[in-house]
């Protein structure tokens, strides 16, 4: 019945002797709003790094739309529609938001290698970048250097940048962290507005956000998949509560 878009099989990752990802076999359905939760140090970010090729796994495989992408370079995965945001902003400090997003769109459109035409000459690319920035409330600062922007704005740019690649599978690593409380739901609502066939895998600590956003939840504890289920199942699971209360009370 299910249409699996992203899958890991027996994924393991060691850092020295420490097993950060322990035999994770995860399946994410097309169009899912899938949340990945777990206490600090559970290996959530490591798993995202393995999925996107930032880190190579020690063992196991990663599949995107049924294709083995375990040893595929990150930029090729992005070209195939798998992209992410980072828990800690990874931006180009000397670029303006407009340049940042326009470059991502230029790469998506396959014109990033053009070395003769000015990027300003790609009217469609620049306009699309501006429209996207406006959606994230960044229109007024789009020509400022990123490094001087307030943290909250940088955070929004981080998320807008992932949107610029028009992902089919979007991995969000704590997108709301550092976003002011009143803007959090706005950010998540932009994510929710993505077309239904776009798959979202979300890491988040804010349980209200998770429960309002996700339709499926996987719980990661000590690098291993602890349990998985619907929002109702997970929120009612006493073991999950115990895991969380034990950690962050």
């Amino acid at each position: 019945m299910s249409d699996i878009v992203l899958e890991t099989r027996n994924l393991k990752r060691y850092f020295g002797a420490f097993l950060a990802t322990n035999d994770v076999s995860l399946k994410v359905e097309r169009g899912a709003r899938h949340a990945l939760i777990g206490p600090n140090g559970a290996g959530k970010t490591t798993l995202i790094n393995l999925l996107t090729g930032v880190l190579p796994p020690s063992e196991g495989q990663v599949f995107l739309e049924g294709e083995d992408i375990t040893s595929m370079a990150s930029f090729r995965r992005v070209k195939r529609g798998l992209t992410r945001t980072f828990q800690i902003n990874q931006l180009f400090s000397e670029f303006t938001p407009l340049e940042t997003v326009a470059l991502a769109i230029a790469e998506r459109e396959g014109v990033g290698h053009n070395l003769w035409r000015s990027i300003a000459g790609y009217g469609k690319v620049v306009d699309e970048a501006a429209t996207l920035l406006a959606r994230f409330g960044l229109a007024s600062v789009m020509a400022e250097r990123t490094v001087i922007l307030p943290y909250g704005k940088q955070r929004l740019l981080e998320i807008a940048l992932a949107f610029a690649s028009k992902p089919r599978v979007l991995l969000l690593d704590e997108p709301a962290a550092g976003v002011p409380e009143d803007e959090r739901h706005e950010v998540l609502s932009i994510v929710s507005d993505l077309p239904a066939d776009v798959t979202v895998l979300l890491i988040e600590h804010d349980m209200d956000l998770v429960f309002s956003f996700a339709n499926r939840i996987s719980v990661l504890v000590a690098g291993a998949l602890f349990t998985e289920g619907t929002v109702a199942e997970i929120s009612a699971d006493p073991r999950v509560k115990a895991v969380y209360l034990g950690e962050n009370a």
């Binding site: 470059l103 790469e107 690649s165």
Partner: peptide, 18 residues
């Protein structure tokens, strides 16, 4: 611009398909 992106932040450059 993509060269500057590679210099500025290679990990992110890869994540926008450079």
């Amino acid at each position: 611009l993509s060269l500057k992106a590679i210099k500025g932040n290679p990990m992110r450059a890869a994540m926008i398909a450079v």
